[in-house]
Every structure is written in structure tokens, then in C-alpha cells.
């Protein structure tokens, strides 16, 4: 679509989607430390329920829209090694803060002052520290790109992607049902 290239319209769309996202995050209860840490302690499964149901819907939507060339994909660059090392580092901070980069913005809107003055400040400082050491980490080969960089399995599928994503959606749904029966 043409208006994609207009910066102000893009900013406006980002704001609108953010407002809807923040509204939903609050409605889901995940703008609260208590709900997220309870998930990480495996006492509550709200976070997993939200993430898995959103993956099912988005994956099925993409399965229709992508082959029809209505949307393009935005798979992230990097490597499995970056994803695992960075992911484990992220996890440590995720548990200590009790919120992640999206939900912490929501928790600020919900009134959490620890999120506003400490957590949010920390994420900004941490992101800057990464930028400072970025060049060195690349030179040392710790950060790299591998054959999965920017790749999506949707491009590997011959024919209709639903033959894989529909069974995947059913497995995820079954997982949600098992969680609901056994753990909630």
C-alpha cells in the first residue's frame, strides 16, 4: 500500500496499533508483575494462554494472506546462536523485572512507578550498552548471522501452507486444552 512510505501516517498507525495492543494487554492482565511472575513460577498460565492463542490466529491469517501476496513477511535477521544466548540473557531480566518490553509499557499505563522509574530506564540503558558493545561482539564472532537469518518456513512450503499450519494450530489448541484441564 502506498501510504506505507509516508512517515507521519506510519507514526499514526504505530500509535493506533499500540493503543489497541496496550488496551488488550491490560484486559489480559499482563500489564501486572503479579500475573507474569506467577506464570514464570508456573502458578498461573494467563501469559501462555494469550501468547499461544495469538500465535494460532496470526499464523492462520498469514497462511492465507502471504501466498496471496497481500502481506509480506518480516522474519528477523540473526542466528540461532544469537537467539539462544540473547534469549537466555533476556529470560534472566524478564524474571527479575517481572515484565517484558511490551508489557512494561502497559504496566506504566496501569500506574506502576517501579516500571516507569526503574524498569523502563533499565531497558533503555541496557539497549544502549548493547549498542556500545555491538561492534566488538560482531568482530569477536559472538554475534553473527546464519542461514536462518531473515528466513521463514513459509518460504520452504510448497503449495498451500494450511497443510502444515492447520495441524500446527490443532496441536497448539490441544496444548491449551491440556493446560486448561490439568493446570488451571
Amino acid at each position: 500500500m502506498k501510504f506505507n512510505h509516508n512517515k507521519n501516517i506510519q507514526r499514526f498507525l504505530g500509535l493506533m496499533i499500540g493503543i489497541a495492543f496496550g488496551f488488550l494487554l491490560h484486559k489480559g492482565g499482563v500489564t501486572k508483575f503479579d500475573i507474569i511472575v506467577s506464570q514464570l513460577r508456573l502458578k498461573d498460565f494467563t501469559v501462555l494462554q494469550i501468547i499461544l492463542s495469538s500465535i494460532i490466529v496470526a499464523m492462520l491469517g498469514i497462511s492465507y494472506l502471504y501466498p496471496h501476496k497481500i502481506i509480506s513477511l518480516k522474519a528477523k535477521r540473526g542466528s540461532l546462536q544469537n537467539a539462544v544466548i540473547g534469549g537466555l540473557i533476556f529470560g534472566v531480566g524478564f524474571a527479575l523485572l517481572g515484565l517484558c518490553p511490551g508489557t512494561i509499557a502497559g504496566s506504566v499505563g496501569n500506574g506502576s512507578l517501579d516500571s516507569l522509574f526503574a524498569g523502563l530506564t533499565g531497558i533503555i540503558i541496557g539497549s544502549f550498552l548493547f549498542a556500545v558493545f555491538y561492534k566488538k561482539l560482531r568482530i569477536l564472532g559472538i554475534l553473527k548471522e546464519d542461514k536462518y537469518s531473515g528466513k521463514s518456513l513459509f518460504d520452504k512450503i510448497e503449495g498451500n501452507p494450511f497443510k502444515y499450519t492447520l495441524p500446527a494450530a490443532l496441536i497448539l489448541t490441544a496444548l491449551l486444552i491440556v493446560i486448561e484441564i490439568l493446570l488451571v
Binding site: 523485572l97 533499565g122 540503558i125
Partner: peptide
């Protein structure tokens, strides 16, 4: 703890992309 957790998240999220 929130400050430390935030710093670690900032580093980890950029590392993981």
C-alpha cells in the same frame, strides 16, 4: 531489581533481536 532486570532485558533483547 527492576533497574537491573531492565538493563539485562535491554541487552538480551537486542542480542536475540
Amino acid at each position: 531489581t527492576a533497574l537491573a532486570g531492565g538493563i539485562i532485558i535491554g541487552i538480551g533483547s537486542r542480542w536475540a533481536g
